[in-house]
Amino acid sequence: MSKTNRTKLLLDISTFAAFLVAMDPRTSGIAIHEWLTIALGATVVVHLLLNWNWIVEVTKRLFAKGKGLNGARTNYILNWLLFVDGILIMLSGIMISEAVVPAFGLTLPMNFAWRSLHDLSANISLLLMGLHITLHWNWIVSTFKHMVLRRETKPVTVLSMESKEVKA
């Protein structure tokens, strides 16, 4: 197994665990909830960097002719939705922040709309994350088996394209 795949899997598992904790501010407390979410933003950037080739390849094909894409189109759109939703969560979270923003000595105008948006986008992110994991399930299982059980498995391409496969 390539080192990149191992890094990807470890990062993804850690990010997912942090995501679950961040989604439960009642248990973790508001300060952990906010700081953890800020850290999650950084891990998402690393996640995107590790999958940069796939993003570029699918984007090119999507705008070139739109042909040759199977499930990659669904995956691509879903990823964009997840990205936009993540930005919405971060932005609305910052606007209603009780720990991070005050820590910098800042105060932001309060607005109930941000609160509602924060809840809504957080709920949507659960649905999108569920779909995101579903679409990558084969890769996750395959890489996990390969890494933990040291079992030889066939390389899995995530929602590959017809003419040229792009490994996740």
Binding site: V21, D24, T27, L126, G130
Partner: peptide
């Protein structure tokens, strides 16, 4: 208490899946 929020999140994601 127990992290019911985490369980709820997992259930929602499973249902979506």
């Amino acid at each position: 208490g127990l992290p019911f929020g985490i369980l709820k999140s997992l259930v929602i994601m499973s249902v979506a899946s």
